[in-house]
């Protein structure tokens, strides 16, 4: 009896620490720095020199969702770095030449000469995890705003584009890992959507038709 009590008391600090860690684990927010590999698109390159301008908000894009109650966790999903990686790889595979702008295209802004400059923004990002829905998938949904402008900042075309990624619940996969995978799928979807729809945007078609010697890209 005495031995039992002694061994129980010896374990008490360990058990207390374990219980405390478990309690604290429920209090902390969850952070995801989206990381993934994005393949180059397999397609004929358009004979265009395209400029890219990522503003700070896009290049450092992150989404923060505060916990609604004690049972939930707050989430911070940082997609900026992955966004830049995706769009760099995608545009280099789609266009003959890609040039980075020194500043936001506009009157008086000195920039390299290009056929057009693409500017991107994430207008909205939503996520869903199985704890919030009855569907056993992790989901990320984004809406991009795309502006194609001249180096002087005059608009050529602007449009919005949704992107969606999901991943099923997986045994031994953390919520963070699954959200990261869903975000990577959403980014891949964004790339696929852009690559296959760029030439179907009416304003882009009109602009390309007016370019000397480049109307045949359509």
């Amino acid at each position: 009896m005495s031995g039992l009590m002694t061994s129980g008391l010896e374990r008490l600090p360990v058990v207390a620490v374990f219980a405390l860690v478990m309690l604290l684990a429920g209090c902390g927010g969850k952070q995801v720095l989206v990381e993934g590999q994005f393949p180059a698109p397999v397609m004929n390159k358009l004979p265009l020199t395209i400029g890219i301008w990522y503003d700070d908000e896009f290049a450092n894009h992150e989404f923060f969702d505060e916990a609604a109650g004690r049972a939930e966790s707050s989430w911070r999903v940082s997609t900026g770095q992955a966004q830049v990686e995706l769009w760099d790889t995608l545009l280099r595979g789609m266009f003959r030449e890609v040039v980075y702008m020194r500043g936001k295209p506009g009157p008086g802004q000195m920039n390299p000469v290009t056929d057009a400059v693409l500017m991107l923004a994430v207008e909205e990002l939503q996520y869903a995890i199985p704890a919030q829905t009855n569907v056993k998938v992790y989901e990320i949904w984004m809406r991009y705003r795309l502006d194609l402008v001249t180096t002087g900042g005059e608009p050529i075309a602007n449009w919005t584009m949704p992107a969606y990624g999901k991943t099923p619940t997986a045994f031994m996969q953390s919520d963070e890992g699954a959200v990261n995978l869903a975000a990577v799928m959403a980014l891949r979807d964004a790339g696929a959507h852009f690559a296959t729809s760029f030439l179907r945007i009416p304003d882009v078609q009109q602009w390309l038709a007016g370019l000397p010697r480049k109307g045949d890209v359509l």
């Binding site: 180059a40 698109p41 397999v42 979807d189 790339g191 690559a195």
Partner: peptide, 12 residues
């Protein structure tokens, strides 16, 4: 799917 990106994504 990577080798043939973006032609075998769920959307395409």
């Amino acid at each position: 799917v990577n080798t043939l990106y973006p032609w075998f994504e769920p959307r395409t």
